[in-house]
Design a protein around this nucleic acid. Structure first.
Lengths: 221, 221
DNA sequence: CAAACAATGTACGAACCAGTACGTTAGCTA
DNA sequence: TAGCTAACGTACTGGTTCGTACATTGTTTG
């Protein structure tokens, strides 16, 4: 037919299920992260893709399942980053610092992920609960933390009997808050926690905090 | 007219501007916190009050301004709690611990506030920016922190030259995350950070962490 | 090469929802 | 007690938004 309006772009197939699906996910991620679950518009997501709203319902079933799919992929990304974490050659202190830095960097590089998690918490984690994939997806970081803590305890470097999940919460809290509450914190205290000029400062601060906690003599309780 | 349907309840005036306004704010706080800004319904808020939707627009002007008013009151509550904080009679270590505990307790007791702040961050803190009241409202906690840090530094108890805003961020991050990310964290790691049985554990952990950071010898940088 | 099916597009509907036009009443004050 | 105004209620509208019925086209396979 060789239409003038629609030049046959070579290499770009008209029909490509995988690409269409992926493009919808990309756009939906941005849109949900930008406006929240209820603020996001299915029509708007469709408009920003090269396909139509019909395809969203064809591939995902509905807005709710689309959001779940977005979450699944976002969590998949951080799981991958954690899996590539190799700290077995480091001493416990350096290993914990490295882990904290990787977590710090990932949160900073993925503000959309942070926003999605915030949004999911507003909705009581109902999409995670409804997702099989997210249910059985453990956290590689937790295993790493467990190993480091065991090594640190044995070598006598780490004082207390710290729980791996607790330490993960401590590190995540700092990294997450810095990004998630950037706007209100900035508006109220006049300081941008994600200011690039302060990046090294906060990255060091996190490591110092965690190491200080792990190596301090605990007050008897 | 002495209607059978509407018994004249004594002590409950039919017309009370202040009470109506306050009731709208109460209900709106719950509703916004429950469903987010876009998820909340003006009709639903009105239905849960003893008045009508018309009054919301009469008193607040619109949904946007209503949310701003809700935020202003919520921040006012935490500011009051901070103002009643008296730690001048304590030594720096005890004072910091006390401050951390008060912050911890307030976050735990006001999950709606946490949710509102999360929601406001999703929207880029635009309502705070639009509010004069919130703009000039400082943080009493910051002044307290500054005083404690100065005392701790002078007495040689605290090592480093820690910034008050940074310390506030550190404490807030832990307290905030524990409540704000309760649902996703619980779903993914099988641990309820707000479990009453764990409350003392996390309250102590926060204090230990902050004190360890403030008293540790810092690695040269 | 002809079914058969996967992938895609169009057009529409029904419910929802923020906001308002307009009318009413309580309670204070002159 | 007349009259005025703040406080309140009803009923509606215009636009939006999720979801779908129905039609169509590319692609693969027997």
């Amino acid at each position: 037919m060789t239409s003038v309006e629609e030049p046959a772009r070579p290499g770009e197939r008209i029909r490509d299920a995988a690409r269409t699906r992926a493009e919808i996910l990309d756009v939906a991620t941005r849109e949900f992260a930008r406006a929240g679950y209820d603020g996001a518009r299915v029509d708007e997501i469709a408009a920003r893709t090269r396909t139509t709203k019909r395809m969203i319902y064809y591939y995902f079933g509905g807005k709710e399942q689309l959001f779940t799919a977005v979450l699944e992929r976002a969590y998949g990304v951080i799981r991958e980053a954690e899996q590539q974490l190799d700290v077995d050659h480091l001493d416990p202190v350096a290993a914990i610092r490295r882990l904290a830095e990787v977590t710090f960097d990932h949160h900073e590089r993925h503000p959309d992920f942070i926003r999605l998690v915030s949004i999911e918490n507003i909705h009581g984690a109902q999409h995670i609960a409804a997702s099989e994939e997210l249910g059985r997806m453990g956290s590689p970081a937790l295993d790493v933390i467990r190993r480091i803590l065991a090594a640190g305890r044995e070598s006598g470097l780490f004082t207390a009997d710290v729980d791996a999940v607790d330490l993960h919460a401590m590190i995540s809290a700092f990294c997450f808050f810095r990004v998630s509450n950037r706007h209100t914190f900035g508006a109220l205290f006049g300081r941008d926690l994600v200011d690039p000029a302060q990046r090294e400062h906060y990255r060091t601060m996190l490591g110092d905090m965690v190491i200080a906690y792990l190596t301090a003599e605990r007050t008897a309780d």
